[in-house]
Each structure stands twice: as C-alpha cells, then as structure tokens.
Amino acid sequence: MTRHDSAQAQPLAELIASGKLRPATATGPVPRPSGSERTDREAGELLRELSEDERY
C-alpha cells in the first residue's frame, strides 16, 4: 500500500506563516554585476576547464 498525503492548498503561505520562509522584500530589477569583465578567455574554453575541475 502507498500512503498519499493531500497537497497543501497554499504551501508557500504555510511556510511563510511558520517562519521557515521569508518572502523577498526587494523590488525592481536585479542589479547587474559591477567591475570589469574578463575577456581573456573564450566561453567554450572556460566551460571545458570548469567541467574538467568537476571531475576531480
């Protein structure tokens, strides 16, 4: 037999009410990163390096 729990009607509202989740308070667009951009490597090269790093 399998036990099925009914889905919560308002899961986010319940998490907020319990204090386990705080809603976002910032409004407007997400700020863009500041500073200079690195242009010394191509995206494909960087992705290959990151992929190789994850293997070890």
Results as ranks from 00 to 15, higher is better:
A9E: 02
P11C: 04
P31C: 01
L46P: 05
R32P: 00
L46D: 08
T39R: 07
P31V: 00
D53L: 06
I16M: 11
A24N: 06
E52V: 00
D53M: 08
A26N: 03
S51K: 08
A26Y: 04
Q10G: 09
T39D: 02
E14T: 15
D40Q: 01
S34W: 15
Q8W: 12
A43R: 12
V30Y: 12
A13Y: 07
D53C: 05
A24P: 08
E14H: 15
L46G: 13
A43P: 05
S6I: 06
L21S: 03
P29S: 03
T25A: 03
A9H: 03
A7L: 11
P31I: 01
E54L: 15
A24Q: 10
T2Q: 11
E45M: 05
G44Q: 05
Q8V: 12
S51F: 04
A26F: 04
E37L: 14
L12K: 12
Q10I: 07
D53H: 07
R3N: 12
L15Q: 08
Y56Q: 14
L50I: 10
S51D: 07
H4M: 10
A24K: 08
E45L: 05
A13E: 08
T25P: 00
L21G: 03
E52N: 08
R41M: 10
A9Q: 05
L12N: 11
R41L: 15
G44S: 09
T39V: 06
V30K: 05
G28T: 00
E54W: 10
H4W: 14
A13F: 08
E49D: 10
A9F: 04
S36K: 12
T39Y: 01
D53I: 03
G28C: 00
T27C: 02
S36D: 14
A17H: 11
G35V: 02
G44T: 03
A17V: 11
S18L: 11
G28H: 01
R32A: 06
I16E: 10
A9K: 10
L21W: 05
A13R: 13
L46S: 14
M1H: 07
A7Y: 06
D40V: 00
D5R: 15
G44L: 09
R55N: 03
P31W: 01
L15D: 03
R55L: 04
R22G: 07
G35Y: 01
G35K: 00
R3F: 12
R48D: 14
M1L: 04
K20I: 02
G19L: 07
L12W: 12
R41N: 09
A43Y: 10
T27P: 00
A7M: 11
M1G: 06
P29N: 01
M1S: 08
P23M: 01
R55C: 01
R55I: 00
E42V: 04
G44R: 06
A9V: 01
G44D: 09
Y56K: 11
P11V: 03
P29A: 04
R22C: 06
L12F: 09
R3E: 14
P31Q: 04
T25C: 02
E54H: 09
D40S: 03
D5T: 07
G35T: 02
E45V: 09
Q10T: 10
S34E: 15
M1R: 06
K20C: 07
R41F: 12
L21H: 11
L15V: 05
P23W: 00
E42A: 07
R3H: 13
L15S: 08
R55F: 01
R41A: 11
